[in-house]
Design a protein around this nucleic acid. Structure first.
Lengths: 99, 99
DNA sequence: TCCATAGTTCGAATGTAATCGAACAATTGC
DNA sequence: GCAATTGTTCGATTACATTCGAACTATGGA
């Protein structure tokens, strides 16, 4: 698989982040990544089909919340924590504190 | 008009707040309320029909972000700032700082 | 009482998002 | 090369949101 594209942090829009986080599955993914660090897609699927999870990861990636790097055959996802903290100070902390 | 109902702050769900804030019109309303304090619906409509604005205010009310009190014939909306700060510390601040 | 004002509710049209199976693509190991 | 693994893409279905006009409700004032 080819590498994914990620938006530059300065192009990340708050509305898009909110939209991404308004889905419980995605909010859960973000919280797990915050707690456990990097994880591949399979590790976070909770009984849902691959295509559904792939969709959710794409939304999270496209809005700027996560970064996906490819290692062999697995995709490792991580929160773009530092970048997000720089662009929207306090946001991630507030999101994660509430969980 | 009869008074509106508002969710108890402990029943407010983060997903619902994110959904409400994912719409640019509503995000703008929240920011204006944060800056200017109480405002009636008419003061915040930006060329849109009343029914559309009424819908957006309802979403903001139902998710727990704003409180609406009735004074005569006008509805005065205000951010539920203190309650929200208690329930989701730092969230409002982060949202408003980014604007 | 009658009218203006401020906002809600209804209903329909349109738009957008979620879901998931099936087919596909890239890498690893045999 | 072939099969297994990991995830993507496509397409269809379904569900949910937005938008807005029109009719309605409640209050206040002439």
């Amino acid at each position: 698989m080819r590498a994914h594209t990620h938006p530059a942090i300065e192009n990340v829009a708050l509305e898009d982040i909110f939209h991404a986080l308004s889905d419980p599955v995605r909010l859960d993914i973000v919280r797990r990544l915050a707690r456990d660090g990097e994880a591949n897609c399979a590790a976070l699927e909770c009984g849902r089909p691959k295509s559904s999870m792939s969709h959710h990861f794409r939304v999270l990636r496209d809005c700027g919340l996560i970064h996906t790097r490819i290692e062999g055959v697995t995709h490792l996802n991580a929160l773009r924590k530092k970048e997000l903290d720089g662009r929207f100070p306090g946001l991630l902390k507030a999101v994660l504190a509430a969980g």
